[in-house]
Design a protein around this nucleic acid. Sequence first.
DNA 1: ATAATATGACACCTAAGGGTTTCACATTTA
DNA 2: TAAATGTGAAACCCTTAGGTGTCATATTAT
Lengths: 110, 110
Amino acid sequence: MSESLKKVDVFQAIADPTRRDVLRLLASKERSIAEITSNYDMSRTAIVKHLKVLTEAGLVTGQKLGREKVYHLKLEPLTEVKQWLDYYEQFWHNKLSKLKFLVENENEDK
Amino acid sequence: MSESLKKVDVFQAIADPTRRDVLRLLASKERSIAEITSNYDMSRTAIVKHLKVLTEAGLVTGQKLGREKVYHLKLEPLTEVKQWLDYYEQFWHNKLSKLKFLVENENEDK
DNA sequence: ATAATATGACACCTAAGGGTTTCACATTTA
DNA sequence: TAAATGTGAAACCCTTAGGTGTCATATTAT
């Protein structure tokens, strides 16, 4: 038993474009709430809510340093997404290469 | 110009557990709406809505055969997810292998 | 022809998601 | 110590998500 207090599903956490963008921001370096917020055209409160979701999904953690709270990225939960994707990769190589060809060359069955 | 009429983001489409499960069902074989519905404790109408979302994300397609409508899986949109994940894999191998070790062996920094 | 089956199309409900503003409090900085 | 900065927390709003039930219609099966 460990790390299982995730209140938010990682798939749900990454469903929102803003949240994916925040992850991208934190990938380069850790940032304070104010710093993150400065990148978006929305209120700090809204960003904090997104950070809460990301935190509960285990994708970020925040620690207080003085008066600011600095968030950094945590990649572990992405393994779940990767594993989920891996399941479909078996079909990928069998079918997708063909399908992709068909799609790119459009309506073959017309 | 092709396939770009996706009204629903693939990340949003896979955010719902039921929808991920429907994808899993369709991975084994194509199924009619009634057949899909029989696997869940919810109304056909609800399932149809999920199928609509999946369709608009490009993850499934349905074709009418007689009086039933048969859905089958389409994997292409998952490439977007895969690419997104790949971006983070650069950190994965650098940091995650270590992190994973730390996590699995719990609180090292205590 | 009739009955059973499968789906389509609505109207409707409730909770949750994503956003806002406002105010209070803690911590720096001048 | 006074002002500025960064955050926490609450109340509120609107739209959408996910679900329901009902009725009509098309297609099989008896």
